[in-house]
Design a protein around this nucleic acid. Sequence first.
DNA 1: AGCACGCCGACT
DNA 2: GTCGGCGTGCTC
Length: 802
Amino acid sequence: MRVAKVIVDVPTNQTNHTFDYLIPEKLENLVQAGMRVTVPFGPRKVMGFVLDVVSESDYGKLKPIEDVMDITPILTGELLQLGKWVSDQTVSFYIQTFQAMLPQILKAKYKKEIEALTEEELPDALQTLFAGRAVMDYEEFVERNGDYNLLLKEVRNGHVQINYLVKSKETKKTIRFIAPNKEPYLLVEALEDIDPRAKKQRQIIEYFIGNPDPIEQKKLLAVLSTTTATINQLVEKKMLKKIDQNVYRDPYEDETFKRTTPLPLSLQQKKAIEPIWQAIEADQDQTFLLHGVTGSGKTEVYLQAIDKVLQKGKEAIVLVPEISLTPQMVNRFKGRFGSEVAVLHSALSPGEKYDEWTKIHKQEVKVVVGARSAIFAPFENIGIIIIDEEHETSYKQDEQPRYHAREVAKKRASYHHCPVILGSATPMLESYARAKKGVYHLLEMPDRMNEAAMPPVEIVDMRDELHAGNRTMFSRNLLESVQERISKNQQVVLLLNRRGHSTFVMCRDCGEVMKCPHCDIALTYHKSSHQLKCHYCDYKIPMVKQCTSCASKSIRYFGTGTQKVEEALREHIPEASIIRMDVDTTRRKGSHKKLLERFGNGEANILLGTQMIAKGLDFENVTLVGVLAVDTMLHLPDFRSSEKTFQLLTQVSGRAGRHKLPGEVIVQTYTPEHYSVQLASQYDYEQFYLQEMEMRRSFHYPPYYYLTLFTVSHPNQFKAQEVTKTISKLLYKHLSDRATILGPTPSPMVRINNRYRYQCMVKYKDEPNQREIVRKIQDHYKDEIHRNDLTIQVDFEPYSLM
DNA sequence: AGCACGCCGACT
DNA sequence: GTCGGCGTGCTC
């Protein structure tokens, strides 16, 4: 007897274990661990992952596997093991993690249909619905208000049956070719039979007599300026045939990548890469922290480390933050390794993603460059894992399973005995502390390439501007500098981490602030659409003409968003051309890239944007970077706000003067004395590290303590609060007395989408049975989670406390 | 997640 | 006495 242990696609507590299924004879030699299968589960059919194939089961009556969905395993043994580990670490369901490892398109699609087994005996009500057809979609049945009980009765009578279908969404892209279906001389004969009026058909046949090779339909249509209708007629007459050829969608097919060869390494690059090469040679699962200032040439170190790995016949995974997966970055990898590279990021269409993933799965590439989920690339012989900008928050998934790519990377590295490289100009405090302790091997690259100095940073105190009577959002200094750069035909990057037009809209008479009715958050005014939008849910309304509370007409806009800055810039510097980049202008696929290309081509003087422009851009003509208001970030209710501010300032400063022209940075702030602003302006990471560590130590924050954040949400505020209270009591009771439990407190955003949110936080050093308690808590509330709209989110080592 | 089973109230 | 409300628990 062959039995498959299957995790079914039903994400609940009670089904979070394997179910045993009999492997039927016809699939006997086919079913393997790591494949997706369809199995009967209760009355329906679901997708499942085979974790193991064994020879016996201690469960009684086994149902057989219905079918396999893959011909070869889609997850390797290592990934199955890894999936279990990730699920346990993040307290997620196994199925969720396995799904997260695969491209979205491989997620199963379920369909239900009703099939009539008889024509006569059906009750009229059903017969009308079927309208002569044998099968109908269940969806249609529901839409047309079908009588469910009647349906069940007829199922019992055996007059109809319900079919459950499981499909994979994967699609293969094909290109249609047209080819002659006869020898050329036969075509000549066939020409005679064609109606003399059918001029186009004759043309086509004549074309194929001269060119008997298959031709892409698209091209044929263009060459002969005809339509598919004409071709179809000839296909029907069996003179031509259609050939559909499977092709990979290659998102980069239109681009040619100039091949590059390894650049000579600077002394500090050599010093950094030596230990990495050694670890690669020795198959050591060592973690390196590559601390290199922006422009120090970290990417070249990555490239040459990968070179070594490829020489050994192994594979490489490179993670980059979504936002910095810019064409520039892709170019560097494609340029060096050509078609050995697959690229995975969210700007690709689902089909393109699937195709890139398939290249990895089929071992057709050796290097993958991608965002967070690329850490699960199904390589079997990994030689190095590189995480660029390791401090980036996007490496932590913000939905279940809440894994951190860095931790998964270390786990995979220990399996493959290979090094992990964490690269950053501003490492996360936790990482730098580990490096200092010797857990990670610290590699320092303190100097920029080509002896370029970091651009000088000038801090402008906006309070002084105000006192001097300047009420605009631009300091005199910044405005002058921008004008000067433009006159010299150089480019400027301006950063403001707030999109929209105004941050909030207030009534001058009664002080009422327009808020989202679902989220208790101030609405942001968007001028282009003349709307008020909530940035946390989809709520939007046309701009109000009068106060919703007192009907006064004196409504004022407060705060500043990118849209408003753009407007003000046009007013102050009419000769400037501006490209604005924020979520609103980059929502469409490829627009991100297009905007950057335009800026790179010098089509604009100023690039104005939110945080998304702070990373990875490298334009040689940029000589001035302006940060309009750093304070919004500094005062967020988050213990990492100083660190994030320091990182942002350092990153964005690195955008100026990367090449021959010297750069300059101007930071506008209302709190110029703050240490993260001061130290960032001096590029003093080390001092910032020491000072911030002191703060973390005294307030019991990471890296001195670990955190676990519980967020409870419920439509009823009291219920949310009460559950949070109970949870904190349970934690208090079951965790050791060395753990501190904070809360319940209202979440920084109390209400989002009509749900109230409360949270409590655990600070601890070591709580080995923590996850077990979390499972118990979730189990305790399972009914309410299911019924009452209660959610309990548990985030281990959270990045965001919102 | 579905879906059946099962235990209480208002109806032919 | 029966139909149907939805609370409870199972799915290999």
